[in-house]
Simulated assay, not measured.
Amino acid sequence: MAAGAKRGVNPESPLGRLIAGPMRPGRLAWIGLRPARHAPLVAAERARITIEAGLVGDHYAGRPGGSRQVTLIQAEDLAAIAGFLGRAEPASPFELRRNLVVEGINLLGLADKRFRVGGVLLEATGGCHPCSRMNEILGDGGYNAVRGRGGLTARVVEGGEIAVGDAVTVETAVTAR
Rank of each mutant, 00 (worst) to 15 (best):
M1E: 10
M1Q: 09
A2Y: 12
A3S: 07
A5D: 11
K6Y: 09
R7M: 10
V9S: 02
P11H: 13
P11Q: 09
E12H: 09
S13E: 01
G16R: 10
L18S: 09
A20S: 15
P25V: 05
G26I: 02
L28A: 11
A29L: 14
I31F: 04
I31E: 01
I31N: 00
R34F: 00
R34V: 01
R34L: 10
A36P: 03
A36Y: 04
H38Y: 12
H38W: 09
P40M: 04
L41F: 03
E45G: 12
R46P: 00
R48G: 06
I49V: 15
I51C: 06
I51P: 01
E52Y: 04
V56Y: 00
G57I: 06
Y60A: 14
G62M: 10
G62S: 14
G66Y: 03
S67P: 01
R68L: 05
Q69R: 08
Q69G: 06
V70F: 08
T71N: 11
L72V: 05
L72A: 06
I73E: 07
E76I: 02
D77V: 01
D77G: 04
L78F: 04
A79Q: 14
A79R: 12
G83S: 07
L85A: 07
G86Q: 07
A88H: 05
A88K: 14
E89R: 13
A91C: 11
P93Q: 04
R98W: 03
N99G: 13
V101R: 03
V102A: 14
G104V: 03
I105G: 03
I105T: 08
L108F: 10
G109P: 02
A111P: 00
A111W: 02
D112I: 00
R114E: 15
G118N: 12
G119R: 14
V120R: 02
L121G: 11
E123S: 14
A124T: 14
A124D: 15
G126S: 15
G127D: 12
G127W: 12
H129I: 03
H129T: 12
P130L: 02
M134A: 15
E136R: 15
E136V: 11
L138C: 11
D140F: 00
G141W: 09
G142F: 13
V146I: 03
V146H: 00
R149V: 00
G150A: 05
V156C: 06
E161H: 13
G165E: 11
D166Y: 00
V168D: 10
V170M: 05
E171D: 08
A173N: 13
R177W: 04
